[in-house]
Design a protein around this nucleic acid. Structure first.
Lengths: 258, 258
DNA sequence: CGGTGTCCGTGCGGTGGCGTACATATTCCC
DNA sequence: GGGAATATGTACGCCACCGCACGGACACCG
């Protein structure tokens, strides 16, 4: 139904799209399309990575799972980035898990091939390091957000981050899944989502969420989304970002959340 | 009194110490010793960096300050690392602030000189990227810790992180400062520190904290400290870490915190 | 030696989120 | 089409932490 089975071109991933033709040309033969179903684990903590993944229309969460089983999302990666920075950063593994949060496709590449190109000190190195810095920004802001903001605000932030990485305004994910990502109770998400629905900002039913009023969502969110978004645009400005969400100004003022 | 005015050698910084002789030799002429008093701001959000700092016996916090004025520490950097990764990562600035948390010295270097060496694709590049990954780990774990752990546990984690970056077991910092770093109320720190004092784990008075029982501190801390420590040791194993804190096993079991 | 500022202790009401338990509703699948 | 699995709604007590307010203690300095 709502799936988009269009064959993914490398240009669907922003990093690949930003590469000069010659670099991309060298990489193309090694890129292989893979399907990423919901819940698929790309790597576990400590795993030595063998591939990097460039999502085209999938979204992958970097999730830390604690001894107690509780979890918290560190960052989210979509067609704006890649999975597996530890490969070129040198560590080869991380203490977190990469898990598919929204099903879709990605382009996969053997890690060694990427490292080879990285080590030519080509444009790829510069690009990947800038992307890594934007990822760092996201992680830092997640830490701040976890400390100071309400579940309501965090839900808004999270929806916006996910929305930016998808086409359209529809998300296929349950409240339980969102709760795991935010590291809160499922009931907390139910309540927060209920408020948003009453305000007419979103609409949801059994694992499907539709954003009706993105501008309102941005207003209800904490500053964290804007900070990450702005910094990402600054660091990686080479593509016109898909949703023209910047003009978030909406004439009639929105009601508060509670 | 308790200051250590010994002249700092490059070897006091672990990153510099880990560099091959030829690389270090190229960098030495550009390294300049600077004193970093408590509270000094090395950069503000958005500042274009002109120098990088290699702390020798100072500690610097990467702090995010929100619109409301509330703050939260993203990561802490001491003689294990450097301030200014955004220079070689390509962004040139970050949304956070770097502020001296414990007075001491550092070696300063013009950013361009570092970039030059970085761009030779020398050992420096590999080293700095690995260090950056360890910093990423610390940020990610901060996010998790902020979400799930109590002030008591976080204080322990924070003390341990600071302790690892100093010689001796004495910290010169007020509870108010710690509260700002953790992003909690000052009173919360007072209570948590009071518990630790009653247990005989630490001793403090007017801005001076002495750790009496480091092993106990590690037991009372959440897993976050161990995760960061372990990952850092894995990523940057080239120097015998100063405090031999690994044998944290202590025969008599410790009482719980409350 | 007294005064002033910094630092720490303590108390009190309020509340957001947690843990738990259970009720309802929708989809899936046989 | 009926039963099971999944997804969402609601309710209740509890507690860590917050915001605020104030009191006491030590330290420095003129």
């Amino acid at each position: 139904m709502s799936k988009t089975p269009a064959t993914p071109a490398p240009q669907q991933n922003h990093l690949l799209a930003a590469l000069p033709a010659d670099v991309l040309h060298r990489m193309l033969p090694h890129l292989e399309r893979v399907e990423l179903p919901l819940g698929k684990v790309l790597y576990e903590p400590g795993d030595t990575l063998r591939h990097v993944y460039f999502p085209t229309d999938a979204i992958v969460s970097l999730l830390y799972v604690m001894e107690s089983g509780a979890s918290a999302e560190i960052a989210v990666v979509g067609n704006d980035g890649l999975i597996g920075i530890s490969l070129f950063m040198g560590g080869e593994s991380t203490p977190s898990r990469a898990i598919v949060q929204s099903a879709g496709s990605a382009l996969r590449m053997p890690g060694q091939r990427l490292i080879d190109e990285f080590n030519r000190h080509s444009d790829l190195l510069v690009l990947l390091l800038r992307y890594t810095q934007s990822l760092i920004t996201q992680m830092a802001q997640t830490a701040v957000c976890n400390r100071h903001h309400s579940v309501d605000q965090q839900l808004c932030r999270w929806l916006l981050l996910s929305l930016d990485r998808l086409s359209g305004s529809h998300l296929a994910m349950t409240q339980e899944l969102i709760a795991n990502m935010l590291g809160v109770r499922r009931e907390g998400v139910t309540e927060a989502a209920g408020k948003l629905q009453k305000l007419g900002v979103i609409e949801y039913a059994r694992g499907h969420i539709t954003v009706l009023d993105r501008a309102a969502l941005e207003k209800l969110s904490c500053e964290c989304y804007a900070v990450v978004r702005k910094e990402t645009d600054r660091l990686l400005p080479w593509f016109p970002v898909p949703p023209p969400s910047r003009p978030a100004a909406q004439p009639p003022s929105r009601p508060a959340l509670r």
